[in-house]
Amino acid sequence: MTQEAPSSPSATAGFAHIERKRLYIAIWITLLCLTALTTAVAYVDLGGAWNTVVALLIAVGKASIVVLFFMHVRHVIERMIRVVIVAAIFFLALLIIITVADIATRGMLSSPHWLTPSFFLW
């Protein structure tokens, strides 16, 4: 005789919501518009690093839309899936923050002026 392990009722709850087709098309058009905007902005000199900033903001917006709607994350109710999402964002942040910290401090070859032996001895 075989005894089956009970399946968890929450196994499918995280993705139970089905979006309407019209919404998907609207999201798709929004993504296309944002792509066009990225291309258009690339031809305008915003000065300094602002072109990069704007391009990244648009990219983050597009990624957020994909994650929230196409990946159904806005309807996620299961705690474990939330943990996975937060963990993914956290590790991406680690990569970006530490890499940027390296680039930002690469030119600082000597210790800061306040970091002297007396700093540790007071």
Binding site: L94, D102, I103
Partner: peptide
């Protein structure tokens, strides 16, 4: 393991502060 990658880059021109971390 996700916080140690720069130890491969001590002589690559990486910031000394990143190196310390």
């Amino acid at each position: 393991s996700f916080l140690v990658w720069g130890h491969h880059m001590f002589v690559s021109g990486q910031s000394i502060y990143a190196g310390i971390f």
